[in-house]
């Protein structure tokens, strides 16, 4: 048994200062709002509750299940935290978890912590809670199904945001990193969805009061539904755009002064993202992406296994 670093935690050195600072600012503003909301709306009881829930998320991330070939699925917990604790408390809890992971275990850097909190704590809460809130009054089955989709999407959103940050920092090639990250996290997100649904259905059966009307879980308003839907739409639209037609995004980034023209231009890792013998067809692009994702997955499995052997 060991503490396994998750692939979404960006270490220091991989994001440039501009990107790090921008996401720190966004994150600080959101945390500030969360702090003032929770101070206003939550009773004194919430402090130990949120603290222990943060420990719960941390510990729950260690519950794994074997998938195949020595790999295992596990929970990130952003969507689950926001659904059971409400969005603002969920954000604070995830912030604390990511802060401790970065500070104590160097799982994720300090300068880049703003980005990590944004990717894994804020986006996941917005999607997880927003989509779930939109079906709050529907039957349990619908709620669970939507929670599953939201959990999957929240992981994909985190992966997409991570990819874009890496690209804006000039650390990765846009198309490669988006395809590889989304490819791997499409699977990781599946594990996230399954565990989230099972955990929620457990809570529905044993303590439905914690998820019903009047609970923290029902405190967010319509704004959250809108935020959740908007973020989900952005993920759904941006992912194919970044992986199939990255030129537009790159144009925007160059115009905004994020990256130097030419720095990222004639990349050749998989020339124009096509498989040579298939020509320049959409199928070829998709296949190139799948190959890239499989290679990354393979390398992750191998490093994961060797790390596991070392620590067990």
């Amino acid at each position: 048994m060991h503490y396994a670093p998750a692939p979404l935690h960006i270490p220091d050195g991989f994001l440039n200062v501009t990107v790090s600072v921008i996401f720190w600012v966004v994150t600080i503003v959101m945390i500030g709002m969360a702090v003032s909301r929770t101070n206003k709306s939550l009773g004194e009881k919430q402090v130990p509750l949120m603290g222990i829930m943060a420990a719960f998320i941390f510990a729950a991330q260690m519950i794994n299940f074997p998938v195949a070939g020595g790999t295992s699925g596990h929970l990130l917990g952003g969507a689950l935290a926001a659904i059971v604790l409400g969005p603002w408390a969920g954000m604070l809890v995830m912030t604390a978890v990511i802060a401790v992971q970065g500070l104590l275990f160097q799982d994720g850097g300090l300068l880049v912590m703003g980005a990590n909190i944004f990717n894994m704590g804020l986006l996941t809460a917005a999607i997880g809670y927003g989509l779930y809130r939109s079906v709050m009054n529907k039957p349990t089955g619908t709620k669970l199904a939507v929670a599953g989709v939201a959990a999957w999407l929240s992981v994909m959103a985190g992966a997409l945001a991570t990819s874009l940050q890496l690209w804006l920092s000039g650390t990765s090639n846009l198309q490669t990193v988006v395809i590889a990250m989304l490819g791997v996290h499409a699977l990781i997100g599946l594990g996230e969805a399954l565990i989230t649904v099972a955990a929620l259905s457990f809570i529905f059966r044993t303590r439905p009061d914690l998820l019903g009307e009047g609970s923290a879980s029902a405190e967010g308003g319509r704004g959250w539904i809108i935020a959740g839907v908007i973020v989900s739409l952005i993920v759904a639209l941006l992912s194919p755009l970044a992986s199939a037609a990255p030129d537009g995004l790159e144009r925007v980034a160059i115009d905004m002064g994020f990256i130097d023209a030419g720095q990222d231009a004639p990349y050749e890792i998989i020339p124009d993202y096509t498989v040579p013998f298939l020509g320049e067809t959409p199928l070829s692009t998709i296949l190139a992406g799948v190959i890239g994702a499989l290679i990354v997955l393979g390398i992750m499995v191998v490093t994961g296994r060797s790390l596991q052997k070392k620590t067990s």
Binding site: A59, A60, F65, G191, L194, I195, T196, V197, A199, I203
Partner: peptide, 12 residues
Amino acid sequence: AGVAGNMAGQLF
């Protein structure tokens, strides 16, 4: 995965 989810729920 369901068993792992149950454990997470139990722990929660």
